[in-house]
Design a binder for these strands. Sequence first.
DNA 1: TTGTGTTTTATTGCCTCC
DNA 2: GGAGGCAATAAAACACAA
Length: 281
Amino acid sequence: MESGRLFFDPTSACHGGNMLFLGNGDSVFRGPRSSIMSMEESSKRRPFFSSPEDLYDEEYYDEQLPEKKRRLTPEQVHLLEKSFEAENKLEPERKTQLAKKLGLQSRQVAVWFQNRRARWKTKQLERDYDLLKSTYDSLLANFDSIHKENEKLKAEVASLTEKLQAKEEGAGAPPPAQKSESLAGDMTEIMGLQFGVKAEDRLSTGSGGSAVVDEEGPQLVDSGDSYFQSVQYPGCMGTVDGVHSEEDDGSDDGRSYFPDVFAAAEQQQEGENLECWWVWS
DNA sequence: TTGTGTTTTATTGCCTCC
DNA sequence: GGAGGCAATAAAACACAA
């Protein structure tokens, strides 16, 4: 192996400055985390191996320099994906083993995992958005139908009240006014309670209505396609311990990036089911 | 072929944890 | 203070339409 050669992307040095030139003429590869590797060391840890055999392939060295950013082989990616599925974070030992197995630098394996986690998170945000949107649409549609039903029932009450009054007036002897007025008043009050107070309940977080849940009712949030039930990456979901630590600040519990929102939506959905039961019974 | 958008690999700087 | 994680970003590699 030719000593003193650096295997780095020269273009990276432009923006990243991963090359340091020392006053004594030596140059070192400045790796991430400011870990300074000697020139010799960096040449040993040459990036972009396509296979373990390439590591000691003189011809490869001569023909491929200067190194350019090289994609991993499908086999390497496959193994990395499998490893990621099992556990989306790398312990140092596992990283080293994986790197050895793949003929990559451990740093490359770490970078791959880092990028893979970022991709997974992006996808997850998209899924969460879709779920949130469909939940909102569903709730909106439900609200509209209930609102219409409310208006319809109100009109019905007014009509019946009118008929009742007409009947009482046509009966000759005026019945105890107190009674008919009381009856109409009662109905109005009941309707007011039903369509006023309950509507507020419906628009609240649903905490009041969630005590009773219609388990047979539609559970949009927990549909079969929902992220909460489907486990795309066993190692990334809440079912595996490793996932829970993806976000150190606790914003990501491995299930959703909007846990509170979905919880509220879920509760509201339950409230909606209860509401339906209440309205139609 | 070329222009353009997307994906993948890699770096940098900041933050947190031990 | 070092190690490792993440977000932001650069740039090469790739895909694809015109």
